[in-house]
Design a protein around this nucleic acid. Structure first.
Lengths: 187, 187
DNA sequence: TCCGTTACCGAACATTCTGTATGGTAATAA
DNA sequence: TTATTACCATACAGAATGTTCGGTAACGGA
C-alpha cells in the first residue's frame, strides 16, 4: 500500500476518532473531518464512500482485533474440566481494553458510546458462541441457546458500560467477578 | 388545545411512525415527513424544533404511558410476602406492549429498533428502581444496587428484543418465564 | 537515477436539506 | 359576529453532500 495512502487513511481515522471523543457522531460533518485531518475533500471520498463507511471501518479495526485475539484463547470449558486456573476470557477482554491502541475506552465512554457498545456487542456474540459451543453447559438451563448467547454478550457489554459510566473504579478482576456472579447460574 | 393543532400534530406523528417502520431514521428528512403528513413546512417547525425533538416527543408518548401504568402496580416484594399470585410487573409489560396504540412493537422490531430499545431501557430503569427499592432483596447479592438495576433493565429489554427478532413465537407467559429464570438468582 | 504511475490538492459545481420569514386564507373559540 | 390564530404556499439564505477536473508532486520499480 502506497505510503501516501496509509498516511491519509491514518490521518482521517485519527481525526475522526478525535472528533468522536468530543462531538456527537451525527453532527460531525465530512467537512469537519477533512479540516481536522487536513486532507482534501476528494481524498476523503477516494478512501471512504461515506461517513458511515468510515465508522464501519474504524469499528472493524477496533473490535475485530480485540475479538480475534480472544478467539485464540482456550474455550471456557477447559477452565472447568482440567482444573487449571486459566483466566476467563472475559477477564482477558477487560485487560485488553485498557491496552488497546487508539483509545478504545475513550470511545466506549464518550457521548457516542452507544454506537460502539453496539458494535462491541455484535462482535462479542460471535466470540461467546464459539466459546460456549458444544460444551453442553448452556443446554442444561433449558433455555434456547441463542437466547443465552445473546444474554451473556449483552450482559458483558453492559457491565463494561456500567463500569465506564462510574469512573472505572473497579479493577478488571473485581469487575470480572461481578460479571461471573451474574451469569454463573446459567453456565 | 386547538383542534387544528391536534390534527396537525397527530398527522405528523402518524406520518413519522409510518416512515420509521420502513426507512432508517437518519435518512428520513423533514421533507419526507411533511410530504407524508401533508402539512406545510412552516407547520412542522411550529410544532417541533427539529426532527430530533419529534422523535423525543414520540418516545415520551410511547414509553411514558406504558411505564407510568406499570408504576401503579404493586411492587415486586408484595408478590413474595403476601403469597398472592399477582402477575409480575414484567409479564404485565409484555402484555401491555401488544395492546398499545401506534404499534409500539412495530417500531421496536423495525430497522430503527435500536433507537426505541434505548428509550425503553432508560424508562424501564426508573421503573425497576422503584419496584425493587428498599426490598433489601438486591442487597443480599452483595453487588452494587445500580449495577443490578441496570442489569435487570437491560436484560428485560434484550429479552423483548430477542423475542421480536425471532418472530414473537413465545407467549408473554413463556417469555416472562425465560426472563424470570435469568434474573431469579439475583432477586 | 530515471520514468511511468498514482495519490493528492484546490477549486468549482449541481443538488439537497435546513430553518426562517412573509403575506394571505380559513378554521376556531368566545 | 369577531378577534384570534393555525395554517398554507412560496421564497430565501446557508450549509453539507458527493462529483469532476487539471495540475502537482510523491512514490516504487527498473
Amino acid at each position: 500500500m502506497d505510503r501516501r495512502q496509509r498516511k491519509s487513511r491514518e490521518a482521517i481515522f485519527t481525526a475522526f476518532t478525535r472528533l468522536l471523543e468530543k462531538q456527537a457522531y451525527h453532527q460531525i460533518t465530512v467537512q469537519d473531518i477533512i479540516d481536522e485531518a487536513d486532507v482534501g475533500r476528494a481524498t476523503f471520498y477516494a478512501h471512504f464512500e461515506t461517513k458511515e463507511y468510515l465508522l464501519k471501518d474504524l469499528c472493524e479495526e477496533l473490535f475485530g482485533h480485540i475479538i480475534d485475539t480472544a478467539m485464540g484463547l482456550p474455550h471456557e470449558h477447559y477452565h472447568y474440566s482440567c482444573g487449571m486456573t486459566t483466566d476467563s476470557v472475559f477477564l482477558h477482554l477487560l485487560r485488553h481494553l485498557r491496552e488497546n491502541d487508539r483509545n478504545i475506552l475513550a470511545l466506549l465512554s464518550s457521548r457516542n458510546n452507544e454506537i460502539f457498545l453496539q458494535y462491541f456487542k455484535t462482535n462479542l456474540k460471535k466470540l461467546v458462541k464459539t466459546q460456549f459451543a458444544d460444551t453442553g453447559k448452556l443446554k442444561e438451563s433449558k433455555l434456547p441457546e441463542d437466547f443465552l448467547v445473546n444474554h451473556i454478550s449483552v450482559s458483558f457489554v453492559e457491565t463494561v458500560s456500567w463500569w465506564l459510566a462510574h469512573g472505572t473504579k473497579e479493577t478488571p478482576e473485581e469487575l470480572a467477578e461481578y460479571f461471573e456472579r451474574i451469569i454463573a447460574p446459567l453456565v
